[in-house]
Amino acid sequence: MNANLSAGQSSTRKVKDRLFQALCIGAIIFSLGALAGLLLDVVISGLPSLSWHFFTNFASRFPEKAGIKAAIYGTLWMMSLTASFCIPIGIATAIYLEEYAGDSRLARIIKLNIANLAGVPSIVYGFLGLAIFVRMLQFDRSVLSGALTMALLVMPIVIVSAQEAIRAVPLSLREGSYALGATRWQTTRRVVLPAAVSGIATGVILALSRAIGETAPLIMIGALTFIAFVPDGPMAPFTALPIQIFNWISRPQAGFHDIAAAAVLVLLLFIFIMNAAASILRHRYDRRWQD
């Protein structure tokens, strides 16, 4: 180490420092540039096709008449059901693992496996959904099947982020609560959860914004592509935005490629709104907790 500090080598150290900085800046330019190029391409080909009737029409064989009404309703239905499955179960699991399970061997194995599940390719969940929800439980190719599959897919993300948020709550807060005679449930509900809510909400929203863009598991469970009515209940057949995009992009006619780009814009808008909501929530509640 001492040799490195000698005067003769200090200039090479500085060069290396510069080089590393340049490398990092290069990496940023590369990734942002690719993203910007992609966005620009989508905006240029998609923006002209965005019109009111694009939102109120069903799919059609004429690109200029085709719309995403069925896809938007399907996506909204699926996402609201997914949220109502994965939020309570995910948060309850995280609470159990962090507050109740302790550090037993079993709990450690479960935690490790949940973290691993977050990395399983989405198509695997598609197979699972097809086998269990569509075939075994006979939910058919319904919104319910799609939502349950998606809930399974994002559940690990919800659990892990909720676990982290709960773990970040200082132990002193819990101990203060116990000192006042509160039970574990009272402490969890009145002290830990309110303190962790911003982290949990952020995790949930980011998990849902992953689910909204997933295509492979939906195609696997057999969500449909052409459908000229909106779902009227959890057992109704449905289509979703990513499937509609996938279908249009593989058509031979260039007109379909443009409306696919327009649908991509709508999907991006959804994801943008959700991510913005996540960061606003985090911001607001972090401040709230201080006063």
Binding site: I219, L224, T225, F226, I227
Partner: peptide, 15 residues
Amino acid sequence: FQLEHPGVRVTVGLS
């Protein structure tokens, strides 16, 4: 077909 028979629900998949 759906224009003529709005009561019939046609769904087409892509498997």
